[in-house]
């Protein structure tokens, strides 16, 4: 008998018989009737408590905001998505304060060292956010690969203000996640951190030291 059959057989022939299936009451997790403005405020408050930085900007001003953020931090370069409109807008802007623009054009194996050592900042889109926990939703993929939001010390995420959900549960339902999951889905709430040394918070232990959200209104 294989281990698989062995384990399954033991579980199926349970000594004490059938197990109960208690009802599920999701009442404690639902009924957050927040307005769009409340959700944005709550999202911002929550992500700020975990060291996230939030900038609100209109579609017209967001590139200035972005350039300002990068200039202030003296970022030498910015990794951008190739196809997503935010990447196209950044490249088309020719903004004088923007640093050198990079793109994740080839498999990571071809430029891993540069990615790990030489990229200062990356910008990605998001699939929305969660107000209750102050979390960004990302589905990395071909255009915005997984390491973009992980390896560079600064991660800038662009969030559309009308894409903030009250809860994770609501986001999964409204975006119909169960119909098909991507290779990787992420919730990101703040920059990488640890408290493993005597409960003292330190940021950027493995991932970004800074997480900056530009909310486009």
């Amino acid at each position: 008998m294989t281990s698989r059959e062995d384990i399954l057989q033991r579980l199926r022939n349970r000594r004490d018989g059938e197990l109960p299936m208690p009802e599920l009451d999701y009442g404690s997790m639902t009924g957050r009737d927040w307005s769009a403005a409340q959700k944005l405020d709550l999202f911002q408050a929550m992500i700020e408590t975990v060291h996230g930085e939030v900038h609100r900007a209109t579609d017209e001003e967001w590139l200035d905001t972005l350039a300002g953020i990068l200039k202030q931090r003296q970022a030498r370069n910015l990794l951008t998505p190739l196809k997503h409109p935010i990447g196209a807008e950044i490249r088309a802007s020719g903004h004088p304060d923007l640093p050198e623009l990079l793109s994740y054009g080839e498999p990571v194996e071809h430029w891993q060292r540069e990615l790990f050592n030489d990229v200062d900042a990356a910008i990605t889109s998001t699939r929305g956010a969660i107000a209750e926990t102050g979390s960004l939703i990302l589905w990395p993929g071909i255009d915005e690969p997984r390491l973009m939001s992980l390896v560079p010390p600064i991660h800038i995420a662009v969030l559309e203000a009308d894409q903030i959900f009250a809860t994770f549960l609501e986001a999964m339902e409204l975006q119909r996640w169960s119909a098909g999951m991507p290779t990787n889905a992420l919730l990101i709430s703040g920059p990488s951190k640890t408290a493993d040394i005597e409960q003292t918070l330190a940021y950027g232990v493995h991932g970004p030291k800074e997480l900056i959200v530009i909310v486009r209104q």
Partner: peptide, 24 residues
């Protein structure tokens, strides 16, 4: 566990690297 509303990362993996994906 730690009194966090959510941890920094909640990482959901459903596949190995797919054709065209540059990492994973």
């Amino acid at each position: 566990a730690t009194g966090q509303h959510l941890t920094t990362y909640f990482n959901m993996i459903s596949r190995p690297r797919q054709p065209g994906e540059p990492d994973g």
